[in-house]
Amino acid sequence: MPAGLPEIVYHMYWLKKNKFLLEKDIYVTWVLFAVEEGTFEYQIGENYGVAEFGDVVVCPPQIAFHRNVLTPLSFHSITFLLPEGEPLKLQPLLAQRKIRLPQIRRLSENYSCLRQADQQMSYSSDNQKLKQHYLADLWLMIAQQALESPEVDPLLEKDEFIRDVALYLNNHAHESIEIRDVAQRFGMTPVQLIRRFKNAYGVNPLQYLTSIRVKQACRLLLITEWTLDVIAGRCGYENGFYLSRVFRKAMGVSPSEFRKQYRY
């Protein structure tokens, strides 16, 4: 095991959960929740937030992990151990509790491989080695992002009004949405909405909406035989040509290349 990397204890993939079995849990090891689809709110100590695709929530041992599903949630739950002495080095990272990982393509590949390992292999040393590899890559992304990004003030994510805006965008991402209409719906000007949303989530509403749509496109490319035009319609875009432009910009590859590389 390379120095500083976590050792996986147990991995479980949950598909479209509407409710956590336990609204509060206390783990004897470290645990991370890596979200593929949907949203959930959490509180760890004084830290509150809302997590979605691209977010990884890390909880240390012996600390109450409160959580509540907001929209049907698909996620990876990974319990792990850290090398002796390593937690002290990770305090700046873990103080954030939630880390947003922008490497969508790399995340999608890791998540797909974790699911594949779960579906095709029983609990075995080979299975654990595969999952250990994917956890190590996730951890490297987490560490890199924590070092490069300033710590987020958890008070910002207590803006429940903006959380409602985010939930609205999640629930209507498959429709045609204009930011000015969203702003009007919530009694704000577009400038007010963009400023307040960016303070809470680190991106503007359009970037947030695009990330939801691209994530949905990734999922549909992997689990269906649908044409790009059909997928575009399910993701809030007028046609496959426009989706292809947005997808390539976000993922670095075309939709067809993504489907060919990551489908199994």
Rank of each mutant, 00 (worst) to 15 (best):
223 I>P: 08
222 L>M: 12
202 G>F: 09
219 R>V: 08
199 N>G: 14
231 I>G: 10
228 L>N: 07
235 C>P: 10
227 T>S: 15
228 L>H: 05
216 Q>P: 09
214 V>I: 15
243 L>Q: 07
195 R>V: 12
228 L>S: 03
201 Y>P: 03
219 R>P: 12
210 T>Q: 11
202 G>A: 12
244 S>L: 07
236 G>C: 13
242 Y>I: 06
204 N>G: 08
227 T>H: 11
197 F>L: 04
217 A>I: 08
226 W>G: 00
212 I>S: 01
240 G>C: 02
210 T>R: 05
201 Y>M: 07
203 V>N: 03
224 T>G: 09
211 S>L: 00
225 E>T: 13
202 G>D: 06
218 C>F: 06
234 R>A: 13
227 T>Y: 05
194 I>N: 14
226 W>M: 12
235 C>W: 05
194 I>Y: 13
231 I>Y: 08
241 F>T: 07
219 R>T: 15
210 T>F: 07
203 V>I: 05
242 Y>G: 04
236 G>H: 11
218 C>M: 13
199 N>H: 15
234 R>I: 04
237 Y>C: 10
211 S>C: 01
232 A>L: 06
222 L>W: 09
197 F>H: 10
204 N>Q: 07
211 S>K: 12
230 V>M: 10
194 I>A: 14
202 G>N: 05
203 V>C: 09
201 Y>H: 04
225 E>A: 15
197 F>E: 12
207 Q>F: 01
197 F>C: 11
214 V>D: 04
208 Y>V: 01
242 Y>F: 12
216 Q>F: 13
196 R>P: 04
219 R>G: 09
209 L>M: 01
203 V>P: 04
194 I>V: 14
226 W>E: 03
215 K>H: 14
222 L>A: 13
204 N>K: 02
